[in-house]
Design a protein around this nucleic acid. Structure first.
Lengths: 190, 190
DNA sequence: GGCTTTCTTGAGTGATCACTCAAGTATATA
DNA sequence: TATATACTTGAGTGATCACTCAAGAAAGCC
């Protein structure tokens, strides 16, 4: 009996993610969203409920895709080579809405306001960090890196470096690829 | 003949800086500013002209203070020890409005909007980066670190690591002091 | 063709945004 | 004391904010 929506929900979330990623939470107005999603307010609220709810969907998708990309890379290249390649990949996609990480941007923008989306973004970052640590541990098991190192500490440091790289890549006049290469190189010394 | 203002302009800029630093540009409303500065709109606009103009004053002061703190530290400890101490200092001030760097927060928030304040923040970051490079060069001249390394590359990487550290310090559940210690430690290996 | 159910439309909601300005008040000089 | 010069006040500006809702349109089932 029902009428079907004229849009592909999944694709709308992608477009919203790109907009939020680029412009941030406060920087993205409903007018912006209506324009990009080609939706009138009524449809928007019927479909997503609120700006925050859509941001959450976009954030979750962003995080899920990031994790998947890392795992795929690790399956292809093995743990250490994946970790070496990942930073350069993160900043080299010119089609991406921004170089900086959407999760860290969200934490920085909303943490001071105690907004739940900041906590959610941080939770995603923690999952990512755990994945980095897991890859370091795999590398240890495979004998690729020094076994006396703490994989959790390595993951924590790696993520921090990656976040710094991606902030730097967002800036004008910074050779971020050189930084990415240095991060990769330093992993060979473990 | 004139009446003197009832406020200390310099202190108002400090308070505005703290508010902007914590809450960001869009996250800080004129109501917030009026409350913190104890000013009515009329006085505010007579004194500062606009929200953007005050943000600029706050940003410039933030940058100036940061540069001064680094130079003071270098005078006390010498270049390398200053660089080793600086990261831990940056994240240990519990009275500060935020752990993350106001300059990077500004770039991340406003760069996508092509806002002049983003370019200004980036210019301040470039000055800071040059100062880091200068300290690395001093350390080379003093024979403290390997002379074959490029001081500009070291400065670039150091700043990236510092920005990453400060983003990490803004997050919940991350042992940022451990990261700061690792950054410091890695400088001993140069 | 009717009927139900959902989706779409878009004008309109109150709240808040950055900002203005005319009127009032305080102070230093003449 | 009179006057000129700021500074302070706070109601008010139009614009934009996220969001609502009643009315109409489209699709599946009888």
């Amino acid at each position: 009996m029902p009428r079907k929506p004229e849009y592909d929900r999944n694709e709308l979330i992608d477009r919203a993610r790109d907009l939020f990623w680029k412009r941030g939470w406060a920087g993205t107005s409903l007018k912006n969203l209506e324009a990009v999603l080609q939706m009138k307010p009524g449809s928007f609220y019927a479909a997503f409920g609120s700006k925050d709810a859509l941001f959450e969907l976009a954030l979750d998708k962003y995080a899920k895709d990031g994790l998947l990309r890392l795992k795929t890379l690790a399956d292809e290249l093995g743990p250490i080579k994946a970790l070496q390649r990942f930073p350069e990949m993160a900043i080299s996609n010119d089609a991406a809405p921004a170089k900086a990480c959407m999760l860290s941007k969200t934490v920085l923008e909303l943490h001071a306001h105690a907004h739940p989306l900041a906590a959610r973004a941080n939770a995603h970052l923690l999952k990512m960090e755990a994945q980095f640590a897991d890859l370091f541990q795999q590398a240890q098991s495979a004998g690729t890196i020094d076994k006396s190192l703490d994989p959790k500490a390595l993951g924590r440091r790696y993520q921090s470096d990656l976040l710094g790289l991606r902030v730097s890549a967002e800036r004008e006049g910074v050779d971020a690829k050189a930084i990415a290469a240095e991060i990769a190189e330093s992993l060979s010394r473990l």
